[in-house]
Each structure stands twice: as C-alpha cells, then as structure tokens.
C-alpha cells in the first residue's frame, strides 16, 4: 500500500458517498445517469468476485463490500425509490455499445483465460468507459449540478492517483499490469474534460 493508492481509494470512496448522499438528501436523481451507475455496479460485481475466494486484508475486503453496497444502493435509489425524478429521456446512451465491445475485448486480451480473470479484465475495461453515459447526459442537458461536478472530479482523481500508484509499484516492486495501466490512462483522459 502506498500513499497514491490510499488517497486514490479514499477519493473513490468519497465520490461514491457524495453521490449517494446527494440523491438521498435531495430525494432526487435529476441529472444523474442511472446507466452509468448500473455499469459501475457491474464493474464492482465482476471485479470483486474474489471476495468469496481470497482474503487479502481487512481494508481490502471492507472497501470492496462498501463499494458494492453503495453502488447497488445508488442504483436502487435511482430506479426504485426516486424513480419519479429519474430523467430517462436524457439518459439515452446505448450502453450495449459499451458492454459488447468491452466483453469481446476482455475475451481477446487478458492475462489468463480463466473465468475469474476474464471477468476481472472485463471490469477493468468497463470501468474505463462506464462514465460515458453520465458525460453524454450532461452534454445533452447542457448543465451539471455542482455536486455532480464534485462527484466527477473525485472519480477522475481516483484513477489518476492509481496511475501514480502503478508508477510507484513498478519502481519499487517491479510490479506492473499493462491492462490496468492502459485502461487507467483511457479512463483518466475521459474525465479530463
């Protein structure tokens, strides 16, 4: 664990909490793309399946549980509890145009052709483009609430910090994962605007 990864995880956690609280407090999900939130829930589900098989640390396990819990709670608030405030006709990004190519790429380019590894690779690729429906929705409505911009900033910052974490780990531990790094660069670039 290094400072970049820790601040990256905290920034990610902050983004997830900011969004959940915003929807809960304002009792509205106006301006929020439910499709992006579904994609994030899918990212966490496919990436954290190893919750059932391997224990790395209390921090690792508890963060994974929190991420999965919050992401499903956010999807629940958007599509069930505050469904009336969901702006469906602006949230019109065709997510199948993301999921299908990402799924195909995960099957083609991965480190190991095992189910868990392919699902992990799928989640890495999907995470890098999962924010597109949200960015698309903001471009259509032409505006983003302040809180949404904070959410996007924290979310963008998290993966940028992970890039530094990978540089750190390469330099000090000789560890690198090209798939995570390339997807991380794509993800960070997407947030830059």
């Amino acid at each position: 664990m290094n400072v970049f990864r820790l601040t990256g995880d905290l920034s990610h956690l902050a983004a997830i909490i900011i969004l959940l609280l915003k929807i809960w407090k304002t009792r509205s999900c106006a301006g929020i793309s439910g499709k992006s939130q579904i994609l994030f829930a899918l990212v966490f589900t496919t990436r954290y399946l190893d919750l059932l098989t391997s224990f790395i640390s209390l921090y690792n396990t508890s963060m994974k549980v929190i991420y999965i819990g919050c992401s499903y709670a956010t999807v629940y608030l958007i599509y069930m509890k505050f469904r009336a405030t969901y702006d469906g006709n602006h949230d019109s990004f065709r997510v199948e145009f993301l999921v299908v190519p990402v799924g195909g790429l995960a099957v083609l380019i991965n480190h190991d052709f095992s189910p868990l590894e392919i699902l992990w690779t799928f989640s890495i690729y999907l995470e890098s483009v999962a924010i597109l429906p949200q960015l698309f929705m903001i471009s259509k409505t032409g505006e983003a609430e302040t809180i949404t911009t904070h959410y996007l900033f924290c979310l963008g910052l998290y993966r940028a910090l992970y890039l530094f974490n990978w540089i750190w780990r390469y330099y000090f531990e000789g560890f690198f994962d090209m798939i995570a790094i390339v997807a991380g660069v794509v993800q960070t670039v997407l947030y830059c605007d």
Partner: peptide, 10 residues
C-alpha cells in the same frame, strides 16, 4: 509473458 499480477488492488 505473465506479469506478476497480484489482485491486492481495489
């Protein structure tokens, strides 16, 4: 080649 991948990252 297989990188030494550890899934200790979130």
């Amino acid at each position: 080649k297989k990188q030494n991948k550890t899934k200790d990252e979130l």
